[in-house]
Design a protein around this nucleic acid. Structure first.
Lengths: 226, 226
DNA sequence: AGGCGTTTTACAACTCTTTCACAAGTCTCT
DNA sequence: AGAGACTTGTGAAAGAGTTGTAAAACGCCT
């Protein structure tokens, strides 16, 4: 569960926010002052900080830079009554990731929180998976989806696809593919690669005769364009 | 260098933004329509997208979802004239990472761009790549871009270009080029080099009859001026 | 044996390379 | 400066080589 710290001295706002965020499934704590915030930050991992700039005691910018100094790397969303550009500039320069001016819509704030969390480190370690066009490849499940529909690839073709994906964008020579997929000492013809590429195109390309992703590089090999 | 795509149909705004971003050291391209944007997205890696919602042709939201469908994972900052919360909600739901309403301060926008890039994946390890004029050459992808458009070079011509790039600025004699590109024991005429140089000029020079980069050194060979 | 996946083969289609011929340009020598 | 010799640019065309593709041959497993 994602942990969010709200640093806000006005109880109504803080509690309202907290309630809304908890409905969304976040684990929320509130600090009513900069000192309290720094204390909370020491207590454990944080995934996001919502920081009001107008605080009693330590100034909001100061809180932010002290948080960063303590190694808090979580995205910080600043809440402020001041909409002047100069204030925003100061906020971003201090290391904020977003700056929302009061009054704000709760929905917008929730979505901004969501957007920030989406970009930060994922909750569960993501598995080896790729997408290109309408194709989704999951290495662990060994599955390939085309337009959400499962596509049945032969094992060799799947390995070939993985090899291309692992070097997506780069050209892979036929012999490189042979080494990667067939192993160091295989006695297989380079033309075999072509046969499997044909299978991939037939099953994954909209128009196999005019491939948009599995591209031929004449006299060299193949390249996967994502 | 971070690559930013601006999708904006109003030239003044697009060019102003572009200039500002370029001063900050970003590599900026502009698409004036959704179609053009999708096309650009196919051409290569993007680190950030700035998307105006009001576009001719394909709707901005549609552009965003199609970009995502193509596997474009870069953060997207929406620019919009509409400040209603309902619009913002729609934008974030579509997968945007930030939403800025017009009119906006340039400074704020630059900082938001910076904040988004800071969070996204670190700059990719630099690979063997060169630029001269409006030409970009990527050895690993074996791709050549002219004004962001992919140029199709024949294999031999590409090798020749690499040889010239490897010694950019220096004169390379025809026989040196033959040795480098064709191999130690080739029985090919030196005139063959000329034929491939002609291809390079035809495809890469603005005015092939008056080359500005691939220069002839009379009685010796060729020289690439970057 | 039958089914499945893999590899090879054969041929057609296609792309690239090289050479040639002539035009245009550059240099050298008087 | 001008003539002649030589060098380079360029488009076309032959042919050499590469790739796409379908089908056959092979081998493995049940």
């Amino acid at each position: 569960m994602r942990r969010i710290l709200i640093i806000e001295d006005e109880p109504n706002l803080a509690l309202g926010l907290r309630a809304n965020l908890e409905v969304e499934g976040y684990d929320v704590s509130v600090a009513e002052s900069g000192e309290a915030a720094l204390h909370s930050a020491d207590a454990g991992r944080l995934d996001l900080v919502i920081l009001d700039l107008m605080l009693p005691g330590i100034d909001g910018f100061e809180v932010l830079s002290r948080l960063r100094a303590r190694g808090v790397d979580a995205p910080v969303l600043i809440l402020s009554a001041r909409a002047d550009e100069i204030d925003k500039v100061r906020g971003f320069r201090a290391g904020a990731d977003d700056y929302v001016t009061k009054p704000f819509g709760v929905m917008e704030l929730l979505l901004r929180v969501q957007a920030l969390l989406r970009r930060s480190s994922p909750e569960s370690p993501s598995r080896q998976a790729w997408r290109f066009g309408d194709i989704e490849v999951d290495a662990e499940r060994r599955s390939v989806l085309r337009a959400r529909e499962e596509v049945a690839l032969t094992p060799r073709a799947f390995e070939l696809l993985l090899a291309l994906l692992a070097n997506a964008g780069a050209v892979m020579a036929r012999h490189e593919l042979l080494r990667t997929v067939w192993g160091y000492d295989s006695s297989v013809t380079t033309r075999t690669v072509d046969a499997h590429v044909a299978e991939l195109r037939r099953k994954l390309e909209v128009n196999p005769a005019e491939p948009r992703h599995i591209l031929t590089v004449h006299k060299v090999g193949y390249r996967l364009r994502t």
